[in-house]
Amino acid sequence: MGHTVSTPETVGFLLIPRFSMIAFTAALEPLRLANHISGRELYRWVLLSPDGTSGEASCGLRIAVDHGIEAAPHIPAIVLCSGIDGHWYEDRAVLSWLRRRAAQGVEFGSLCTASHILARAGLLNGYRCTIHWENLAGFSETYPEIEATGELFTVDRNRFTCAGGTAAMDMMLHRIARTHGEKLAVAIAEQLLHDKIRQGSVRQREAIQPDPAIERQELAAAVKLMLENIEEPLDLLTLSSRLGQSRRNVERLFRKFMNCSPARYYLGLRLQRARQLLCQTRMSVMEVAISCGFVSATHFSKCYRDYFGVAPRADQSSHRVRPLVEPTRQPAVAK
């Protein structure tokens, strides 16, 4: 049950360059509707950017903000909104400002890739968190000491993080229900045509529309085992044994429904994971190769080039040519 709050709760949204527009609006609109449906000002929001100029989303739209971070008033809860390349964001002025606000007891949230930024600032040490599934492997490799759950959203004391996209809506509806009651949260969801408020504990992959072929129980179990054994791949005999099926039947299923052999499908999963690590971490090609079950960089590079049409080192470099900020900038100087 919620409880009556006499003063509006203020939420700040810090727009990181190339933030996800859908995650931002999915988090903001439930607050607006909470005010509209209740007939009271339950929430206020303040839009921030690192330097006070308008925030640019990954789709190119720009949004006017209220303050740059240094001119911002005290805000009890701040949500970081990022998206494309958020895992490379290293604005020292922003990281320092976040640490100062944390020391003042500010509650922090993150949307999409922004958990990377909170982690880089040291604000997720000792906390559970989540991040978009596409960034999960890179995040876990970069911050092995932080428990990344892979859930739609994760709330741990004064940190609330979500996978982005429509998961931001579920997270904010959860916060509204906690403070003002489930009845209001359900009414907001109905206005948004959001047919079911999902729990944070839902795994992201369970919330994604699956490949119809993988809906077959036997294939789904096989793919799950493959994903759980990327660094030390299982041979087909071991995989079949763990599935309780014959090797011949597993081969038949993959040929019929996936149009490839189990080994080829498994290789694709490992290479896709490798690409995530190459493009989202500072791991070397050799380190990525080992993490994805390849015994030599030469074999890994050949497989990678055959699959993606580009060498791993070149692919890695192409994702690092445009840093989001110049990290050597002095903290007090605007961007």
Results as ranks from 00 to 15, higher is better:
residue 181 G to K: 10
residue 186 V to K: 04
residue 152 L to T: 06
residue 168 A to S: 15
residue 130 T to L: 13
residue 126 G to D: 08
residue 158 N to H: 13
residue 99 R to S: 14
residue 123 L to Q: 12
residue 125 N to M: 09
residue 159 R to Q: 12
residue 110 S to H: 12
residue 157 R to N: 12
residue 95 L to V: 09
residue 122 G to A: 04
residue 121 A to P: 00
residue 163 A to S: 15
residue 121 A to R: 02
residue 183 K to D: 10
residue 136 L to H: 06
residue 134 E to G: 01
residue 164 G to F: 12
residue 188 I to E: 04
residue 98 L to C: 09
residue 147 E to I: 06
residue 171 M to A: 12
residue 189 A to H: 02
residue 151 E to A: 15
residue 94 V to D: 04
residue 109 G to Y: 12
residue 153 F to A: 13
residue 92 R to N: 15
residue 160 F to S: 11
residue 102 A to W: 04
residue 161 T to Q: 08
residue 145 E to Q: 15
residue 162 C to G: 11
residue 134 E to T: 13
residue 92 R to D: 08
residue 116 H to K: 11
residue 107 E to A: 13
residue 116 H to M: 14
residue 123 L to K: 10
residue 93 A to M: 10
residue 114 A to N: 05
residue 171 M to Y: 03
residue 186 V to I: 09
residue 125 N to Q: 14
residue 160 F to D: 02
residue 163 A to E: 09
residue 166 T to D: 04
residue 166 T to P: 00
residue 145 E to V: 05
residue 161 T to D: 04
residue 124 L to T: 05
residue 129 C to R: 03
residue 146 I to R: 06
residue 158 N to C: 11
residue 116 H to L: 10
residue 88 W to Y: 10
residue 190 E to W: 01
residue 151 E to C: 11
residue 136 L to A: 14
residue 178 R to L: 14
